[in-house]
Design a binder for these strands. Structure first.
Lengths: 132, 132
DNA sequence: ACTAGTAACTTACTTTAGGTAAGTTAGATG
DNA sequence: CATCTAACTTACCTAAAGTAAGTTACTAGT
């Protein structure tokens, strides 16, 4: 096998990562796990804008297959299933942080009731009541 | 307007950024500009896997509208048009770096002719010939 | 004068991915 | 025995993306 530009591009590390989290809604699921501690199907379904059960089920399967999340079944009544980030999934935090940093710089319009701006970590630690 | 979970989620900074670069191929275009210094329509068309001229033209328009790239027309024969990152677009570098970092940790399979592994910055500075 | 070439698209048409609403499973509760 | 719940699944429809060919405007070659 000889050195080709094509080969180089196929091995682009940015591309590898994009293949894992680049599909529609995939990153939103990860974000909701990492930043809002959501774990359940109906939580994602209720809070991720415009997602539908069909696509959500598919994305959760894909994320499990790529080792980003783990599916745990609790034999309760009614049944309870929890999705949690694996160690590998937690390593996506750096990307989440950089995405937030970009937004805070270029779209700093999220201003709160007390007139202050907060960084996203503060926002997600605080109760919803500080928001407009 | 009262404080709602919905409002909080709508103002999620991660989501803001995802709206800018989350569509299919958008991030690949930015990566090719930032990491490979590509500037022209046919360069993107030839190196981004599976992209087609219709979608490429649309994405370039979207990126211009969101202020990530700039379109410059050079009145030469044949016509030359260059797409370059704006300052805002360059601020996506942090995200690119984190995506590469994630990949290098979890998919470190890109090994080169001399048996060494390199980080993605080294890879993209070197001639293609060091690759398999 | 005619043919081919170039870069950057655009158009018409087909295929695939995603959206919508309703249904399924299995056991619990009234 | 009908209703409720969580976590899906199914059938059907619509919107986004893929394919191939065409367009524009000007140059170079025969």
């Amino acid at each position: 096998m000889s050195a080709t530009l094509e080969h180089m591009i196929k091995n682009c590390p940015v591309d590898n990562t994009f293949k894992i989290i680049g599909k529609k809604f995939t990153f939103h699921i990860v974000r909701n796990m990492a930043m809002r501690n959501q774990t359940r199907f109906n939580e994602f379904l209720g809070t991720i804008e415009n997602i539908n059960p069909k696509t959500l089920a598919l994305r959760l399967k894909e994320l499990e297959e790529t080792g980003i999340i783990q599916r745990t079944v609790y034999d309760e009544i009614p049944i309870r299933i929890e999705y949690t980030l694996t160690k590998k999934g937690e390593d996506l935090q750096g990307i989440i942080d950089q995405m937030a940093t970009f937004s805070m710089k270029h779209y700093p319009k999220t201003v709160f009731k007390d007139g202050k701006r907060r960084n996203y970590k503060q926002v997600f630690k605080r109760p919803v009541s500080v928001l407009h």
